[in-house]
Amino acid sequence: MASIEELSDDALLVMYANGDRDAARVLTLRLTPRVFNHALRLLGDRAEAEDVAQEAMLRLWRIAPDWQQDQAKVTTWLYRVVANLCTDRLRKARPVALDAVEEPVDEASGPVEKMQDRIRAQALQRALSDLPERQRQVVVLRNIEGLSNPEIAEIMEISVEAVESLNARGRRRLAASLSDKREELGYVDAH
């Protein structure tokens, strides 16, 4: 018999709606890091990302009794909620200073490669913050979260062609933005 940790998000959500507390715990531990990190990448602000993550999960709890297992994946639905919440905040918020972009916590110090990866990730995060909001969402979902173009199209409620276009433009802009930092990112031989 499968343990509760092995159950799908859909199944756990149904169990949650029926009052199962373990299902709530497993879903929280499984989905919160993903939701939080996605919000953090879109917003570049830890406190805002925490608020968005809490609100997105609250909306998930609310919809649980009415969840239809054949409508969408839970994660797809969550990405869409996070995207909408982040969009609302970005439109209301003041521009974030580049220095204020949150630096991820690094628990493992040591190898030079890891330090290099940290520097690259931070530089990328800063460059992402300069992208227009829709491009940023697509670029993050496609290139960091690893979702397919059709999935992103469903999340953002746009066509697959629009996803491809936004991704291509976003990547070009990121490349232009980061190109003068290649050396500090460890790409001295990249040309």
Binding site: R46, W61, P104
Partner: peptide, 23 residues
């Protein structure tokens, strides 16, 4: 750079987990 960003995740804070479980 994207691959580095994928690896560079931030742990969800404990108090956030606590609040979400309370909700």
């Amino acid at each position: 750079c994207f691959a580095a960003a994928r690896q560079d995740t931030t742990a969800a804070p404990d108090d956030l987990i606590t609040k979400i479980l309370a909700d």
